[in-house]
């Protein structure tokens, strides 16, 4: 029994290591592809690694109290927690993680958890831009959560389960069994929510890392910033794997997972390079408009 548990923990750590590196390379390669679209050479693919090493190698860092430290810890816990309850590769012992029945609800809570923890920590920093960033982030998150939750409800109704492994199992047997073929309306709502979740253009005003309203991490530096950067990679990987599992038939091997998640992430680049940035009030109105209606339609289709 103990051996079985330890083996599973060891497998989960390996899985986490793989997704961290994959997420970092994904961020790097997408930045480079975006640069090519803009006619630039762009940063090296491994730039996220260098940034994290640089942040970790800073010699001093300042503190604003206990909650300030807990912010990135909560954020990282949110990212790791989200990933660890999603089976990354269907049928693989190594990439099964801690997926069990009912894990879909848990994952949906974990997606929100990191942002809330970050809100607590960032407010402790005392910087007004942190507070602005947090309120913008939470407002936008609440808005895109509506179409996302509706599409997840549609999936749960369709497959009559909240177990992600069972949802993936039900989609096996070819392209026509995927949710994207059986209930495309719900998938459209989910993918629009995904654009907001990834915080790429046109919904990138929340993080805007190179401008004055940088968002929640304004006051974070050194190794705390390194933690946030690492979490970004893990969280990106976790979201992509979740979308692949729910809507695109999951993956039966690691290469399939890489190809599918890469293509799903590519939607961000397509949309992000074509549309300018929206203000937060505009994006909230957008998410609560057409995507919500599409999500409701997806639920109705699943009920029929």
């Amino acid at each position: 029994m103990i051996t079985a548990i330890l083996t599973r923990v060891g497998y989960a750590l390996v899985s986490l290591f793989v997704i961290t590196n994959y997420g970092l390379l994904l961020i790097g390669s997408m930045a480079r592809i975006s640069a090519k679209v803009q006619g630039r050479v762009g940063q090296p693919v491994w730039q996220p690694y260098l940034d994290i090493i640089k942040s970790t190698a800073k010699r001093n860092s300042i503190s604003h109290g206990v909650m300030f430290y807990l912010g990135p810890v909560f954020r990282l816990a949110g990212g790791v927690g989200t990933y660890l309850f999603i089976p990354a590769v269907f049928g693989s012992a190594l990439f099964r993680n801690f997926s069990d029945s009912g894990d879909l609800l848990l994952v949906m809570y974990f997606i929100f958890f990191g942002q809330l923890g970050m809100a607590l920590g960032a407010s402790e920093g005392g910087h007004p831009y942190s507070a602005i960033g947090v309120s913008r982030g939470l407002a936008q998150m609440t808005a895109f959560e509506v179409p996302f939750a509706l599409s997840v409800i549609a999936v749960a109704i369709q497959y009559k389960t909240l177990d992600i492994t069972a949802i993936v199992a039900a989609q096996q047997g070819g392209f026509l069994h995927w949710t994207v073929a059986t209930n495309p309306v719900a998938v459209v709502a989910a993918l629009i929510a995904f654009l907001g979740m990834s915080m790429h253009n046109p919904f990138s005003v929340v993080i805007a890392p190179q401008e004055i309203p940088i968002g929640p991490p304004t006051e974070y530096q050194s190794n705390l910033l390194g933690m946030l950067q690492t979490n970004r990679a893990i969280f990106n990987g976790a979201k992509l794997v979740l979308y692949m599992n729910l809507f695109f038939g999951g993956a039966t091997s690691l290469p399939v997972m890489v190809i599918k998640t890469f293509l799903i992430y590519f939607i961000n680049v397509f949309v992000g390079q074509a549309f300018p940035r929206l203000r937060v009030d505009q994006s909230i109105r957008f998410f609560l408009g057409a995507p919500t209606v599409i999500g409701v339609a997806g639920v109705i289709i699943a009920l029929l």
């Binding site: 640069a35 890392p209 006051e219």
Partner: peptide, 13 residues
């Protein structure tokens, strides 16, 4: 960006 240089808005980072 190709030289790893990018702007940041806050002195902390």
């Amino acid at each position: 960006y190709r030289y790893g240089i990018q702007p940041r808005p806050t002195p902390r980072q």
